[in-house]
């Protein structure tokens, strides 16, 4: 009977219910860094070494190999392209974190109306596809804004920063809420019995304790955000994927260019995000033991 119900039988022992562990990748808040961080470093090194070989094999002995063409473009692609992606991700993360921190506090507000409004914002923007949101922001936002008589232009890349910061803020809000609620209620009571106001309790007692707990999921969201910046290429922002496409066109748009050029972009993202993923996993393990 026990076999049929899925409960494992150990010979000579009573049937026990083992902790349920779902199969397949874990879809928790760390899904990206878990996946990325699980790739052994040796594999990455091997792939990076094999890539030029694969490119050579494809080129078929032309006068100038695709690798030479790529080498010519690397400084441009890295400085004008990839660093721009990093800039977009850092700006979007900064805005998203700030807005998300306040939204997270809104989620635990004692004011029902505030809670409901913020909950609506968070639920909506956590579930909307990022690309759709980017298009909406791009098309709906004006190309310039006038504040106190000064006209500030809003280039596309600023709009994409805003478009990426919104879903990030919604997700960071959940991170903040989860971390605050992971602090035992006894801490609130101790603070209350010492005369701390709610605001003092949050800022001086609760948040400092959950800072450590927020760091790994926050870094996870940064990795996701960075990997999502190529979405901006669809909106005509000159980040690495747009520039890669332009570079390939300049080199005659030959099919053997696809692997080295896009492969280079892939390697850049991997090299940037892989350490973040490993560090996040390490931090998460460390804090999990200590708390």
């Amino acid at each position: 009977m026990a076999h049929k119900s899925g409960v494992p039988m150990v010979p000579g022992n009573l049937p026990v219910l083992l902790p349920f562990a779902p199969r397949g990748p874990a879809h928790d808040e760390f899904f990206l860094v878990r996946w990325l961080g699980a790739i052994p470093l040796a594999w990455l090194t091997a792939a990076a070494l094999l890539l030029p070989a694969a490119v050579m094999a494809q080129s078929g002995g032309a006068a100038e190999s695709p690798l030479d063409k790529l080498l010519r473009w690397i400084p441009f692609l890295f400085v004008q392209g990839f660093l721009f992606n990093v800039l977009i991700s850092v700006c979007a993360m900064a805005i998203g974190t700030l807005a998300g921190a306040f939204a997270g506090l809104g989620l635990i507000s004692r004011n029902r109306l505030v809670r409901m409004v913020v909950q609506g914002y968070v639920s909506f923007f956590r579930n909307i596809p990022w690309l759709v949101l980017l298009f909406i922001v791009l098309l709906a936002a004006p190309f310039q804004v006038t504040v106190f008589g000064t006209t500030i232009p809003l280039p596309s890349w600023i709009k994409t920063v805003i478009g990426l910061a919104i879903p990030v803020s919604a997700n960071i809000a959940e991170v903040v809420r989860g971390a605050v609620q992971s602090v035992p209620t006894a801490q609130w009571e101790a603070a209350e019995s010492l005369g701390f106001t709610r605001r003092q309790t949050i800022w001086q007692i609760i948040l400092p304790q959950c800072f450590k707990r927020m760091l790994p999921p926050w870094m996870n969201w940064y990795a996701i955000l960075t990997m999502s910046t190529p979405l901006c290429s669809l909106l005509g922002v000159g980040e690495i994927i747009s520039l890669t496409r332009q570079a390939m066109e300049a080199e005659g748009n030959r099919p053997e260019l696809l692997l080295p050029f896009y492969g280079f972009a892939l390697v850049l993202f991997l090299v940037y995000c892989y350490p973040i993923a490993r560090l996040t996993m390490w931090l998460e393990r460390r804090f999990a033991v200590k708390t």
Partner: peptide, 8 residues
Amino acid sequence: FQQYNLFP
């Protein structure tokens, strides 16, 4: 309190 509830 029973559980001390110091600020860790």
